[in-house]
């Protein structure tokens, strides 16, 4: 698997660290009433067989956080973009 970093070009997997699902959103509320939303955010995952949006860190490169769209069945990468707040 090779990832095309928008800043550095295509690099081998060993330069990147994986964080996980990029679709989960941190809840705004810190109130006890938001407990279920926090359990969802921290623990529960769709875990799809197919296209998966995920965070990778170019940890042995430019240190940018990326949102990679990758097929979890074929390992084909169909999109890489810089992670942005709110995206």
């Amino acid at each position: 698997m090779r990832i095309k970093c928008p800043y550095c070009g295509e690099r081998g997997l060993e330069e990147f660290s994986y964080r996980g699902d990029a679709t989960v959103k941190r809840p705004e509320s810190l109130e006890p009433s938001a407990a279920d939303a926090w359990v969802d955010y921290v623990y529960l995952r769709d875990n799809p067989a197919g296209l998966h949006k995920e965070h990778w860190h170019h940890s042995a490169g430019c240190h940018s956080w990326l949102v990679v769209t990758r097929d979890t069945v074929t390992h084909e990468i169909v999109g890489v973009e810089p992670a942005r707040e709110g995206s």
Binding site: G20, N47, E54
Partner: peptide, 11 residues
Amino acid sequence: YNTYAQRGNLP
């Protein structure tokens, strides 16, 4: 990383 491929990578 998440995968259902039953095969891994070289690193």
